[in-house]
């Protein structure tokens, strides 16, 4: 099978490398400046009034309008509801997607069954489908199910992802040794037990990375929620932001205020999961 990837050396706790010099930090600061700039900008511009977008140099110094503009965001759209919905959608999707992908990934990597390779190729191929164009049939399907304008319509199709299965299969392949699976079976562990007690701890860092990316992608997903949800009943952060952007006169400070407060929960989730990734690697998930 051409697509079956060879297992790599499995992770082990890493001893300290040599300390990084000033040059490394200087580089990082440069990269950081480029990365942070638009975020900084979307915090700074809302502190001013709308005409700041027209200033010839980028506006870099804060003004005094931030809270006023954030207040306007909450006055214009139901941003609390949007935040709540986005939290529900993103966390449900993340938990389910990572769990289901781990199950399937583990099966593809470590369990023998008939048709395994063919089925895995199917997964890889499905990852290549441009899902954009499935939108209208999918919308009709949601209509049949009566799910239009409900959060289900966004959550359920996102519960699984071919990328995620691909990713977790790779993770299991690398991080879960066959011997460990066999040993656990000898100890009388069921397949589910092996998955839960052996595989999952071993792939925790990779699962955390996947969780992070899934959460980000779901949080930022825009096209499908816009189409299938009702922005007045079930807004998400992204559709609420797009409502802000729908005036005759584009209200830049309003849009950017929304963008700025919309990204905060994402940063929190990131920092939480980032710890998890490091911890996972450091404690050496695979014993023995």
């Amino acid at each position: 099978m051409a697509l079956a990837l060879r297992p790599a050396p499995r992770p082990r706790p890493r001893p300290r490398t040599e300390r990084s010099g000033a040059l490394v930090y200087a580089t990082l600061v440069g990269v950081m400046a480029a990365s942070l700039f638009p975020l900084y900008y979307s915090f700074v511009l809302p502190t001013r009034d709308n005409s700041a977008i027209g200033d010839s140099a980028l506006t870099l110094t804060p003004g005094g309008n931030l809270f006023h503009n954030i207040q306007r965001v909450y006055d214009t759209v139901d941003f609390w509801l949007a935040l709540r919905n986005s939290m529900i959608i993103s966390s449900t999707v993340t938990v389910c997607c990572v769990f289901l992908a781990s199950l399937a990934g583990f099966a593809f990597a470590k369990l023998p069954f008939r048709g395994r390779n063919a089925l895995f190729v199917t997964v890889v191929i499905t990852a290549m489908l441009p899902t954009q164009l499935g939108m209208i049939p999918l919308y009709m399907l949601m209509g049949e199910l009566g799910w239009i304008a409900t959060l289900k319509a966004v959550i359920v199709p996102a519960l699984v992802s071919a990328f995620a299965v691909f990713w977790m299969r790779q993770a299991c392949d690398e991080a879960v040794p066959y011997e460990l699976v066999e040993a656990a079976r000898v100890d009388g562990c069921s397949t589910l037990g092996i998955f839960w007690h052996v595989a999952m701890p071993a792939v925790r860092p990779q699962a955390a990375v996947l969780a992070m990316f899934t959460f980000m992608a779901t949080w930022n997903d825009f096209m499908w929620p816009l189409i299938v949800l009702d922005p007045s009943v079930t807004p998400t952060v992204q559709t609420a932001l797009s409502s802000l952007a729908s005036g005759y006169a584009l209200d830049y400070t309003l849009i950017l205020s929304g963008a700025a407060i919309g990204v905060l929960p994402l940063l929190v989730v990131f920092l939480l999961l980032s710890k998890q990734i490091v911890a996972g690697v450091m404690q050496g998930a695979v014993k023995g």
């Binding site: 209208i136 919308y139 816009l226 189409i227 922005p231 007045s232 409502s243 005036g247």
Partner: peptide
């Protein structure tokens, strides 16, 4: 309900 890019949403709903 304000919607950016309304025609796209509307055609889907009409379809």
């Amino acid at each position: 309900v304000l919607v950016e890019d309304l025609p796209k949403k509307l055609v889907t709903q009409l379809a």
